[in-house]
Write a protein that binds this DNA or RNA. Sequence first.
DNA 1: AAAGCTTAGTGTATTATTTACACATATAAA
DNA 2: TTTATATGTGTAAATAATACACTAAGCTTT
Lengths: 236, 236
Amino acid sequence: MESNALHISVDCVIFGYDDDGLKVLLIDQQLPYDGSSADIQTQPQLPGDLILINEGLLQAAKRVLFELTQLNGIYLKQFHAFGDPSRVNDDKDLAWLQSLRTHPEQRVITVAYFGLVSLQDHTPKPASFAGSVNWVDLNDIPPLAFDHNEILSTGFDALREQLESHHISFELLPKKFTLSQLQALYELVLDKKFDKRNFRKNVKRMSHVIPLNEKQQGVMHKPAQLFSFNPNEISE
Amino acid sequence: MESNALHISVDCVIFGYDDDGLKVLLIDQQLPYDGSSADIQTQPQLPGDLILINEGLLQAAKRVLFELTQLNGIYLKQFHAFGDPSRVNDDKDLAWLQSLRTHPEQRVITVAYFGLVSLQDHTPKPASFAGSVNWVDLNDIPPLAFDHNEILSTGFDALREQLESHHISFELLPKKFTLSQLQALYELVLDKKFDKRNFRKNVKRMSHVIPLNEKQQGVMHKPAQLFSFNPNEISE
DNA sequence: AAAGCTTAGTGTATTATTTACACATATAAA
DNA sequence: TTTATATGTGTAAATAATACACTAAGCTTT
């Protein structure tokens, strides 16, 4: 049995964290410069694009993310493929695709990755040739193009499930961090409060969290000791 | 940027369980009946096929599984998409594809699902128009076609991770089961031993495992009490 | 220089959970 | 009746989780 060919894209849900909270990287759709599409309404979307004919999925996610946002070398993990035949059926989305692609009517299946960055260690607002790029707080996500709200929500579920089991929290923190920062991250993602002393007791048992001989500087309170993650101790 | 079209398939890793152990459903490739392909060597493979042009991914997995194995209404869960450009590059695999498809050179990305059945409650050897179908013990898996060994292995990882967190063990057991059967399943999948008394203490705390007023029959030892899962208590 | 503000950092007692462990029991077969 | 086999059960010890409040260090203000 032979089917017609389809398109494959990758979409990236990039979470950025700093003391201000958890953000997601959204881009604005870039419209072509001919007059024909001047009146197309667009909505923000996750960075994503079609994969190339000889490109692996992870490789495509890295390339697309870099092309759209200049972000490079960050942790990316596949979490789900979305293939509902009606996932691209909004009029606005179709109009945008028609302005951009040679076969806009073709169905697209997308493989979604989530990514994690520390907003402190990475340029917080990557430039792009392909439309503006914004970190948007998780609590202020507007309606997105296509099924990107669903993809984002599923991606956040994946992050929540893996935060404790897969030792990925350090991807969201600066290289040197305080235990309060680590605790705040856990509380935000898992949506529950931890007792300060008990939390620190647990951290002391984690062999991959190592104390540095260094303190916070320039804070108007008792400076906290800095910690870092030992990459040798971190197993997928 | 526009890429060429690709093909999408679904592949199913169907685990079947009985007191004899954990099996995986494999099919033998069906060769066309013209003489041209008489000398093609084939390897067993996971049930899978291209998706249709207007078909959702899960829908496709259900259809393909039914067409190839007559299995119906079983638990299926997506676990990973495989898209390495070289995932189909073995000569034997290419020869088989060339005998079967109109565009055998086109790259195929596959979305993989794992499925769970009780070998006792389902016909243990589904018939098929598309080649023979076999339950193969997990410890005796031969080299498979394409990248199906990797898909199987990743699928088993997914099963292992979800067995405890997602209340899916009952999909592998008969409707009525003993606590020893449940324990043996956990020990096999998680590859560790449990203490009988402690295991039963834990089960008693699970509200979705309910005791029946019924006992094993025809066993030459003290008959065990039967239990079943309460489907209302099982949340994804 | 002192007082005040802010977050860091620490220990213990209580409760809940996990672990380790051994023998009597019900059925079928001999 | 005896034997073989897997079932079913309780308790003590160790470990982990929870609840809880004050002093310390640096900066700012007066």
